[in-house]
Design a protein around this nucleic acid. Structure first.
Length: 109
DNA sequence: AGTAAGGCGGGCA
DNA sequence: GTGCCCGCCTTAC
C-alpha cells in the first residue's frame, strides 16, 4: 500500500461534519513528520470532490485543513471547499473553521 | 497578537 | 540516484 493510498483511505474515515488536519493525517499514517507529503498525496490523487464522487472515491479533502484552524491552499479553490464545508455543517469564516478544535476528528483508532 | 524563517518527508522530473 | 517541488508544521522574532 502506497503512502498516498493510506492517506486517502484515512481521509475517507473522517465522518461528515467533522474535519482533520494534515498533521493528524500524517500521524495516522505512522509518519508524523510527513505532513507535507500528506497534502501532496491528496493533490496527486486529484481530490476534486466532484471527480472523486464520479470515481466513487469520495475523498473529502476539503475536510482537511491546517493545524492552526486555517484552510489550506488546496487547488486554488479554497472558497469552493468552504462552501462544501458549510454544506456539511462546518462553518467557515475568513478562511478559518469555526469551532475547529471541537470539530477536529482525531484518528484515535 | 501576526509574520518570518527553518526543517522534515514523500512525490515526481 | 539526485534534486526540486509542495495543499505543512513548528519555533523564533
Amino acid at each position: 500500500m502506497d503512502f498516498a493510498q493510506v492517506v486517502l483511505n484515512t481521509v475517507r474515515k473522517v465522518p461528515k461534519g467533522k474535519i482533520t488536519t494534515y498533521k493528524l493525517l500524517a500521524k495516522a499514517c505512522n509518519k508524523p513528520k510527513a505532513s507535507r507529503s500528506v497534502g501532496r498525496a491528496l493533490n496527486k490523487n486529484k481530490c476534486s470532490f466532484f471527480e472523486n464522487i464520479a470515481k466513487n472515491k469520495m475523498i473529502p479533502c476539503h475536510r482537511v485543513i491546517y493545524s492552526n484552524g486555517r484552510i489550506g491552499g488546496f487547488s486554488k479553490g479554497v472558497e469552493k471547499k468552504i462552501v462544501l464545508l458549510e454544506k456539511e455543517g462546518v462553518l467557515v469564516q475568513n478562511g478559518r473553521v469555526l469551532e475547529f478544535s471541537e470539530r477536529l476528528y482525531e484518528f484515535k483508532d
